[in-house]
Amino acid sequence: MTTHRRQRRRFLRQLGHALGGAAASRALPGATIALLSGAPTGVAADEIHRREIPDTDETIPAIGMGTYVTFNVGPDQAMRDQLTEVLETFFDMGGSMIDSSPMYGTAEAVLGDCLERLDDTEGMFSATKVWTRSTSEGREQIEDSLNLWGIEEFDLMQIHNLVNWEAHLETIRARRDAGEIRYTGITTSHGRRHDSLERIMRDEPLDFVQLTYNVLDREVEQRLLPLAQERGIAVIANRPFRRGRMFDRVEGKPLPDWAPEYGIDNWAQFFLKFIISHPAITCAIPATSRPEHMRENMGAMRGPLPDEDTRRAMITYLEEV
């Protein structure tokens, strides 16, 4: 039964894609998917927000999934079972983009194991990284990652934290030209190396950048996000919850009165909706090891998004609590 429900949901989602990306997603609101598939209506009460990859006709859901820490669980079977449930929830609720890295210990191996247990991962947008100073090791890492994920090609290959980026970019471009990778990207986190990233974004043709952006870390609004829009580069926002520390800040604090107007039922959705309402952001990638948190995260893809005034109110509210 579970399998059939999942396949039906997947079929409906794929139908949405086939009908024309973002426009079709609006034509097939989440409530309809929920009604037909039995998904919880509490979070599927509106359409799924998708974002266009600049200069393409392709769209991806505005909420993806990170794997840092959460999927680095080694051989522990109980934890892997729970992560398989997380992954199943992710796909069931319209998720697509998954991001990982060889730097994350066993995360890619665990992810591959969990994906293998799911009988249908069609529509997944796979993103990983190269993370080594050695150019030849970088080539091997891409092969290793393919094997660990159990897939034949990556949608997006990024250079982790700009490490040896010139050489790795050459490797990735060669593989893209050979049809083995679809998009190229480069990443940084927690504000380091923004100047270098800006230079690369100006000088190199990139499809994606990944950087830290959340309601408290907004430095990238000044230069990097406008530059990404100007250069037609998709943006993945990492650390949307500051590795969970933002929840400590708001523990026991109420959401603002106006939150329900934007379909915000919890703090995860408050944080995520702030991020994906920025016009330059393509996708946010929260990480979790708990299915109930995944449901909360994916709920941020539904309902109205805050406008500019509301975004300012969100910042003010968070600074005051």
């Binding site: 820490v69 959460t70 669980v73 080694g74 522990d76 934890m79 210990g105 995360a107």
Partner: peptide, 16 residues
């Protein structure tokens, strides 16, 4: 920043 959680760290200890 450590790339694993407390539960994972103790699961390594427990297995060992």
């Amino acid at each position: 920043m450590l790339p694993y959680s407390l539960d994972v760290y103790f699961s390594v200890i427990a297995r060992m």
